[in-house]
Amino acid sequence: MLEDCQQKEKIVREQMEQKVKSLVDEKEAVIAASMKEKEKCNELALKAEIFSAGQYNPATMDKILDTLNRKVAEVYKACGEETEVSSLTTFQMLKEIEIRVSQLCEMLEAIPNEYLDVFEANEKLRVKERRQRLREEKLKDLKTAQERRAKLALKRAIAAPKKRVGRKLVYRSQPPETKHGKEQVVKDTTRIEEDYYFS
């Protein structure tokens, strides 16, 4: 009886420890979530402050939102969705795009590795071809630029010489140098030293 009671007590203690551990983990998760919410709250407060401080310009914001809506609509159409774009809001389109991306990721995970290897090889070939095309276009642009420069040089060479109008430029000579007294003093001292040592 005593052993049975001890075993039951041990089992109950282990269950309680697991519950306490799960509650502690849950508490930490709630604290982390509350910190994230506080950060979001601070960001929203900052945005509200900017909005109320007069830095908000409705015309520019409308333009930005329109361009954003157009870009999202383009991506939505590229995803191949059948629903008409005009009947959906930007948020709904983004939600549909996110769902489609998650479906594609799941499908990608289901594909066997052999097909993935073939796909990667095809992708490498496409990248190589794209680089080759860009290289060829660059060479073509350089060739056309070189031909244009050659044509301009030929045109300048063939063109009749330009006749100068007006007076010719006259060569102006340099003004005479002024002699400084220091050079004369140096020459005199060297001459005196030569006379002293070599006479």
Rank of each mutant, 00 (worst) to 15 (best):
K38F: 13
A33V: 14
C5F: 06
K10L: 08
K19A: 11
Q7F: 02
Q18W: 01
C41M: 11
D25L: 14
N42V: 09
K19R: 07
M16V: 02
M16Q: 01
C41Y: 05
A29D: 14
A29M: 15
K19W: 09
V12M: 07
C41Q: 00
A32T: 09
V20F: 06
V30A: 15
A33R: 15
A33F: 06
Q6C: 04
D25H: 13
Q7D: 03
A32D: 07
I11V: 02
K38Q: 10
V20I: 11
K19L: 09
I11Q: 05
V24G: 10
K10N: 01
R13D: 00
S34D: 13
C41W: 12
K40N: 06
Q15V: 01
R13A: 02
A33I: 14
M35R: 15
I11H: 05
C41R: 04
V24A: 03
V20W: 09
M35P: 13
K27M: 12
V24N: 09
I11F: 09
R13S: 03
A29P: 03
A29H: 14
E37K: 07
S22Q: 13
D4H: 12
E28I: 07
D4G: 05
L23D: 10
I31Y: 07
C41A: 05
E3Q: 03
V24R: 08
K36P: 00
A29T: 11
E28M: 14
M35L: 15
D25V: 13
I31T: 07
L23N: 07
Q7G: 00
K27T: 15
E39K: 03
V30W: 12
M35Y: 12
A29F: 13
